[in-house]
Write a protein that binds this DNA or RNA. Sequence first.
DNA 1: CGGCTTCTTTTGTTGCAACAAAATGTGAAG
DNA 2: CTTCACATTTTGTTGCAACAAAAGAAGCCG
Lengths: 229, 229
Amino acid sequence: MSATQSTLGKQMQAPNLGDTTYEELRDRLTRGVYRPGDKLTVRSVAEALGVSSTPARDAINRLVADNSLVYAGPKTVIVPVLTEADLREITYIRLALEGLAAELAMERRQPEDVENLMEIQTKINSALLAKSYAAALWHNKEFHFLVYRLSGMPHLVAMIEAQWLRVGPSFYGLYPHFAEERQGVRNHQMAIEAMMDGDRGALRAAFENDIREGYRQLRSGLLDGRIRS
Amino acid sequence: MSATQSTLGKQMQAPNLGDTTYEELRDRLTRGVYRPGDKLTVRSVAEALGVSSTPARDAINRLVADNSLVYAGPKTVIVPVLTEADLREITYIRLALEGLAAELAMERRQPEDVENLMEIQTKINSALLAKSYAAALWHNKEFHFLVYRLSGMPHLVAMIEAQWLRVGPSFYGLYPHFAEERQGVRNHQMAIEAMMDGDRGALRAAFENDIREGYRQLRSGLLDGRIRS
DNA sequence: CGGCTTCTTTTGTTGCAACAAAATGTGAAG
DNA sequence: CTTCACATTTTGTTGCAACAAAAGAAGCCG
């Protein structure tokens, strides 16, 4: 279970323990193992992942570097509890970056890509019906990043993924409420149709809509404290 | 000499040696101390900066994490030698991010900001006239980031800075040729005027033009090998 | 003289321990 | 019951040494 992990197609060198720990922590973050406000210490991570303190520290530092974890005090790193301002900024960045990726994806799409997209959407629908929200969340991510990867720009995709990682834990806490009221299905459908038609503007609009809807949901969840730790 | 350094207004904790080393390396990278293709080793950095291997390794890892340094082999990190594809991707990202920042800056600008901008532009002109290209480069960065910071979005600014850091070393190698033929002065002038008029689209266009011109220069410099190590 | 193999040196990785500083728990006083 | 000060514990930092692996140099064979 790791679809969008090794996003960067860079010169691959033997992955070291620090990288492994980093990936594992990322995974747990997106899976909702840790919730906003949870504290992460070097030693606890080291023990939980079965490594020594050095790679554990490496991993935490990297997560902090890309804001997937934040400092709550001089010696305490926690899973970020998003403020309204944070959410607003992330949304603007997402609109710019994911909008760009979507437009670029249009030029490189293959017929089979649309097929795959529809297939993933089927999985999302099934998962929602079965109330398997974790699975729905997963396939939703698959849907988006299948498109983004089509842009052919690995760093762009990595930057987008970093933003998803920032909202991930908060997002997870909002389920299943979010999935229930969700109209994302409609946005996805529009994205698929836009892709078939080759309508670049429509594709971007579909994704922007999806992002904006997520923003509204998350924001209202934030305001009445449904998310906090 | 450090204008755009502590971009993130996050919860400040006592900066540790690793952070210091990271900042110092960043500075040297933007200053052209290291050139594309140069190899950086843990021990050499540790000695050069007068720290032990642990913080040196921390710093290098962080630089690699945000692509300011790249792997050339399993055990060799070098200052990136940009490919045409790299440059293209960076430019797209810059257009999206810096365009966004410029638009947002418009809403928060104060009259004094325009003053400061004009002041910086004067410094750029003087530096160009005196052929002090390093200074011109520096003030150019000041100009851009003064605007970007007005967006009020610290993470956005940090992401933009990361992109600048990627092209920094290659850019530096292109001087003074770049500065000579430069029409950036005109773009900056248009940006200032757009800001006075409150014309958001014009402000964005001015910055996009600047980015695109830089792209063309850098690309042609890349193609006839004026940049390589 | 060129290409390949082998050997030496360099280099990243990782675990660990000592240190300093912050966080937490405890208790007393108001 | 709250608040503040103190003591204890937890936690991040950092230097270092041993290990493994890769890079670079030297030598050998074709």
